[in-house]
Amino acid sequence: MSAVTKTPLPKLSGPWMRSRPTLLIVFTVITVILTVIGLLMALFYAGQDITQGEVQRIFYLHVSAFAGASMALGVSVIASVLYLWKRDPKWDRLSIPCVEVGFALALMNLITGMVWARPIWNTWWTWDPRLTSSAIMILTYAAYFMLRAGIENPETRRRLTSVYAILAYITVIVTFVIIRIRPDTIHPAVIGPSPQNAEGGFELSSSMLAAMSFNMVVWSVFIPWVLIWWRLRIEVLSEYVNVLRAKVAEQ
């Protein structure tokens, strides 16, 4: 038996990987419905903010997207640790979709934040510590993709990107805590007390709180989860094709 035939093929069974992933499709439909409900709640159910008006509603997505990003990226850290520990490529395969989804949600967080800042702070962008650190966080994960693309040997690639995914999460933590340790930020804290100089903070009424919690759950659990599984499916399938190709090449 040759070494290639020994290379374990990724499993193509289970509810996620079979050719018609019924369960995954069901979850996707549920997630789409929940997302729409969340949007409707944010737009119509939640009470209007007195000082900021309608533009405040973007916060329901802005905050939830960051929660989703930190969740997805957090899973990438867990997957990376498991990869370095167990050396099973499946953990690395899980890490890629997590970083990609986390990256996309972080971008969404940044863009919605800019849209909100235009009327409230009167500028698209300011070099506020929170904004700076979330931009840095996005660049860190952009560097992750560069690193991944720059290593040819798959084993080395898995090992080094796992190490980098662990390190990169420090920027997520910094982004999260920075408005709590840096007094000179103008960014409001939605959860917990805002810094003194914060401009554009607001108190949540009960309907706003309901909309916020609902969107939070949708964006930090359902959406990343469904996206990660679809992306993971692609990753496993392309791995499968690679193994088959190597087998054909050997014969």
Partner: peptide, 13 residues
């Protein structure tokens, strides 16, 4: 003992 670089086997059992 087996070693492969990616899918390329270098040492086979």
């Amino acid at each position: 003992l087996t070693k492969s670089f990616g899918y390329v086997p270098v040492i086979k059992r």
